[in-house]
Design a binder for these strands. Structure first.
Lengths: 182, 182
DNA sequence: CCAATAGGGTAAGTAACACTTACTCACAAT
DNA sequence: ATTGTGAGTAAGTGTTACTTACCCTATTGG
């Protein structure tokens, strides 16, 4: 998994050969298949590991915030921070796993779903307490937030461009919570 | 290209073999390589064709709207409509081409960039005329809108789930322009 | 009128790759 | 002493994207 991550920093999934992984890890190709079902499984396992850490960190931070808006702001900031700090994880999650249906049956995806449910609950609570507009559709709000986060990172991941996390996070939060219209 | 599109409706890019494409098109494998540089090029060409139509349609509709907000609303609605109506195109654009750097040097990507520039201009004009808040960062606003659109379609594309275009479009526009905070 | 050219098309390859098989070795538990 | 097990390997195999060398037909220019 370490060797594969190392190679993922240099090129994309399909350009990496099993021979190359084996050589970098200083084992033989056959051994890979004792630990992983196939090449994709190796990818999913890496994602799983990172996602676990990511989720634990975020849930800790959320617990420190009281209002729904503050919690969502923490999510926006922390997500951007995690994506920016861990390019390989981001690359796998945003660009490599989604095109195969296998992923959506993997354990890694189960974590994504659990995470989504947590956030939907925050939004629903915000609507209940009157913090958010009553006509808000929680699923759509979540899509707007997540979509913005992921799109903000795409340039960084694909072209290696850097961005100001604080600026982007407050920018997204401002639009989503206060609206862009004057 | 027709045969490939047909196959793309059933499975993902890497599960489709050149032999299969050739058989469906009732030609031999070799002929594919007289018309396309490689398998990826075939993918990009399909994207190119659809994107051209998509862009022409949207630019027509934009011309009919006066205010910046109305124009952006048209973009949101039309994008969702196009994605929903053309699953194969969406699948290619949102899931299959992005993981390879080749795409970002292709003609198809040049069209995406041109499209983005058009929209940025609309947003900038909206800030100038005072329709949008002066502190709005155009790039971030565009990322929020595009991210929301793309995320809204992902479920449809990946799982074949259907959604109410009108509801999602007005939902996104409401959040982005008026904000979710009460 | 016919020869040259070129484009549409094919059959039979080839190299590289993901993955498998059948095996060895070390060592711990019964 | 024997058996089982987990780590590891060497040498495959089938499939796949892509290539090569060729054929056939139709237009076009001298």
């Amino acid at each position: 998994m370490n060797s594969f991550s190392l190679l993922m920093a240099q090129k994309d999934f399909h350009s990496i050969t099993t021979a190359e992984i084996a050589k970098t890890a200083e084992v033989t190709e056959g051994l890979i298949y004792k630990y992983f079902k196939d090449k994709k499984d190796l990818l999913y396992q890496i994602l799983n590991e990172h996602f676990f850490e990511f989720q634990a960190k975020i849930e800790n931070r959320i617990a420190n915030e009281k209002t729904c808006v503050e919690q969502l702001e923490v999510i926006i900031f922390s997500s951007l921070e995690s994506y920016a700090a861990n390019r390989i994880f981001s690359k796998i999650l945003l660009l490599e796993v989604r095109n195969s249906l296998d992923f959506f049956e993997s354990g890694a995806y189960e974590m994504v779903r659990k995470y989504t449910r947590t956030i939907l609950k925050i939004i629903e609570k915000g609507i209940e307490t009157g913090e958010l507009k009553p006509e808000t559709n929680p699923h759509i709000l979540w899509k707007v937030i997540l979509g913005a986060i992921e799109h903000a990172c795409l340039g960084e991941i694909i072209f290696g461009r850097e961005f100001d996390i604080d600026e982007v996070a407050t920018g997204i939060a401002n639009i989503v919570f206060n609206g862009a219209k004057a």
